[in-house]
Design a protein around this nucleic acid. Structure first.
Lengths: 199, 199, 199, 199
DNA sequence: GTTTAACCGAGACGGTACGTCCAGTCTTCCC
DNA sequence: GGGAAGACTGGACGTACCGTCTCGGTTAAAC
């Protein structure tokens, strides 16, 4: 016969996971987290809210943090990819302001904070979070600096990683630890001080 | 201000709480946190490990984070009060190195990380943590800068808060988020870059 | 001090099981069995009906048949102790009629039938049922015959066990297997045939 | 009435069910019952053991007791049809001994006991069991008596039903209730007492 | 020889109940 | 009155089956 190219050789709806159930669970988890916080986020409530059987959740996600990780998805990549305006200061100012906004006001940011919080109690989650999302975000955070170096705006041997951390680290500190508001003035001052120092 | 034996004014069971029970609970909580992590830290296990009735715990602490807060005690103040060497760079280098050490290697640091993690899910805890410990620590963190200003080593109108955050924030970011090791080289580079910029 | 004779040396309500909870559970189990049958008898429903936490049930009863066994209690002894009228035939006629009544119409009889049914799937229950209740009942079933022997109404070397089984066995067969009604005519005929044969 | 190969009038998949699947299910059910008891007999395990889809089971049998009923089949008729030796006592002695053997040692007997046990919780099953098997068996149990009446060995107006129950009822009682062994001595004694009484 | 319809395996699904763990409250006895 | 002990209600946990469903595949009768 012909080379049955479509579904390889699977049969039955063995691979037929319900997309509706998956989406309902992710949305329910997201909603519950925002509404009732991480403590109010139980598998039972997610199941009830999503109109889904508990078993369906356990079939696909090992724990509630896995649901959050999936719900978190690529939100960070979508929201936090720095634009290129041709000037380091402009790029960084905008990027850092968007980071602050993401962390403090968006739903995805709430999920992110919950995950980082939980990661303090769960080294495995910490590893997955870092490998899965933080590394990629760090690469995106580097972009303005790398473009500035390519533009000769910055010296070639700059420690970009350190520079990145000196910006996003401080914003994270306010969000995760001190809880102080992260204003546009603050992020701008942060960027300006760094740019002044580096150029 | 000497170490007045804390339980000095209770006379037997009749007129006061048992210092032995209090100490046993705090120690048990500390041990369980280090051994089994925050998830393995339940009131029942603390009670069992401490040889104490659950009711005794509930009588004196509203929740398990209160136990941790009390166990955490003034460790931060004791370990993280910056010395005065007469030079800003030296003070900051030493202080930041000790902060890194505290956060990553000490038992108190483990408690602190657990509390900050939990605070992401628990706004009330976040408030208490900030009011009770972080504000005081921030004041201590300012000391090197304030001394340098008094010494005229730094300009008077320096934004000290920002300077502090630009140091401790980055260290916290590594500890709480990226999980990268915080080496002496790293903290020194952080201090040096800032000091160079400010002076 | 005085010889604290009451609670030996127990302290706390360590031995303070709630009689209210116990009674509520037993009654709820009884009711649910009669209303919804053995299949409708779940621990969760017993707990809900009794207004008791599931844990309280699991604390005191290993399984739902244990609840039934306890609810069954001494009902058999109370209802099925044969009276002494001085005549074998009279004693047996009355006793067998009461047995039939117990098995087919009483709540305790419903529990008994459920237990015997379950014992077919559960050898351990079978053993407990036999040792705990059936042996005692068999001893009571023998009484009319033993009194008749004492009275010289029957020969001394009569196989009393066999005689007992030839009466109660047939009634059980109707109740448990064929489901035919066990009328007074039937039990009387059974008794009369046996008594005629033995005397 | 000869053994027409059961599946003779189905032609392939189109108009008929898979005999292989049917047999596998019945055997799996039988095995699981004997190995793990009635509680260990679940549709899922039967399906897994038989290498059959759950749906296939639900397509053909409404419940697991239906599987057992079908697996039980005509075993009773085959094993428990009394032979005709020309003497009432001989016929009954042999028949009752075979009944005892069937109930206590055969696989079909195990299924029978499980079904009778379950019938205590399930009136519908009880009805089907009685209509489907017990009535037929009762008719077979009557045969020795009817032949004896035809032979004038017994009086014509004998209550044959009662006589039958006085034999098989007692054996059932031992098997289902007391669990005592049913020896040949016991069954012979039972028969002899009855025959002596009736003739 | 193609269509076609019933059966089959596989397994995902919404549910119910299981038995366990812990939270937080309570009552009782001892010191 | 504090403390040890522990029973209590309540609720989430993760698991096991239930009975229903949908999906390809297989296969032999029907076309």
């Amino acid at each position: 016969m012909l080379g049955t190219l479509c579904g390889v050789d699977h049969h039955g709806n063995r691979y037929g996971r319900s997309e509706a159930a998956r989406a309902a669970v992710l949305e329910a988890a997201d909603d519950l987290l925002v509404e009732h916080g991480f403590a109010g986020l139980t598998i039972e409530k997610i199941a009830a809210r999503a109109g889904v059987a508990k078993q369906t959740i356990y079939r696909w996600w090992p724990s509630k943090v896995d649901i959050l990780l999936e719900a978190f998805g690529d939100d960070m990549a979508e929201d936090l990819t720095p634009a290129d305006h041709g000037y380091l200061a402009t790029d960084l100012r905008e990027h850092l302001a968007r980071l602050a906004d993401f962390l403090t006001t968006s739903d995805a940011g709430a999920v992110y904070r919950a995950l980082v919080g939980q990661a303090q109690h769960d080294p495995q989650l910490a590893t997955r979070l870092r490998d899965g999302h933080l590394a990629a975000q760090h690469a995106r955070d580097r972009l303005p600096f790398e473009r500035a170096i390519a533009r000769r705006e910055l010296v070639e041997n700059l420690d970009v990683d350190l520079a990145v951390e000196r910006l996003v680290g401080v914003v994270h500190y306010r969000v995760l630890v001190t809880g102080e508001p992260v204003t546009r003035e603050f992020t701008d001052a942060l960027v300006d001080a760094l740019v002044l120092e580096l150029t």
